[in-house]
């Protein structure tokens, strides 16, 4: 592969665009195919299928042996709330390979000292998400306990089809949240996709343990989701 092609591939990946690197295993030549690009014949079918499934693999097409390396955007976690749990979740998520960013309009919480090296926005979610919209490759965890901060991004995440949506708070808190968000226009079925109380039920007690429970639940939602392109179903009904 030429350096120019490698550079272009990395640019596409940084911009969160889905691409496939096609390598001819016979002569070593390669090309980059963007999602949505139309290719003819057997190759076109195989490429479309690979974008849907996200699975890399070797295919025989049009008399050639080709390796398709599928690069779909890295899964991202958006955390609402620069709280103690987020301080533990940020390094854990990075080790597990997720991009992570934190939004909290309370400037006293969202300080670089508490979140060194983390993408941090000390602004209202309404403002941040206008410039950095949520997408299907994003998980949203709402951790402030404050409806004024959490409610908007929860609704936005469900509407954007985020592969995971979770919210901190007791069952009672969540019942009140249901009343508010359904009154605000969400359907009951949409609301049911919210994992609340957040995190797998592992008896987590400290903020770091709760961060493990949340990260595990996000990984489960990512790896066990429907690959047909449909939106994920109720994430972790038992949680």
């Amino acid at each position: 592969m030429e350096l120019a092609k490698l550079t272009q591939l990395n640019e596409e990946r940084r911009a969160r665009r889905a691409v496939i690197l096609l390598t001819d295993l016979g002569d070593g030549s390669s090309r980059i195919v963007r999602e949505g690009e139309k290719l003819d014949g057997e190759l076109g079918e195989a490429v479309a299928k690979a974008f849907r499934s996200g699975k890399s693999g070797t295919i025989e097409a049009d008399g050639r042996t080709l390796f398709m390396n599928v690069h779909v955007p890295p899964a991202r976690i958006v955390v609402i709330g620069a709280v103690h749990i987020s301080q533990a979740l940020a390094p854990m998520a990075r080790i597990a390979g997720f991009d992570l960013e934190i939004i909290d309009p309370r400037a006293a919480f969202a300080t670089p000292e508490r979140f060194a090296g983390v993408g941090l926005y000390a602004e209202w979610p309404e403002e941040v998400l206008r410039d950095r919209p949520l997408d299907r490759y994003t998980a949203l965890a709402a951790l402030t306990h404050d409806p004024k901060i959490d409610d908007f991004p929860l609704t936005a995440a469900l509407q954007a089809g985020c592969f995971y949506v979770g919210a901190l708070g007791s069952r009672k808190t969540n019942a009140r949240r249901r009343e508010r968000l359904v009154a605000g226009g969400l359907s009951e079925a949409q609301f049911d996709r919210i994992a609340a109380p957040i995190g797998l039920d592992i008896g987590a007690s400290s903020p770091a343990e709760i961060a493990v429970a949340i990260l595990a639940q996000i990984i489960a939602a990512l790896r066990q989701r429907d690959l047909s392109g449909a939106l994920p179903g109720g994430a972790m009904a038992e949680a």
Binding site: N10, V72, A75, F98, F163
Partner: peptide, 20 residues
């Protein structure tokens, strides 16, 4: 199943293609 890539962002030291 690898529907979504969790290999880190392309600026990350753990990203082999960025390293290359």
């Amino acid at each position: 199943e690898r529907g979504m890539d969790t290999s880190s962002g392309a600026n990350d030291p753990g990203d082999e293609l960025a390293v290359a």
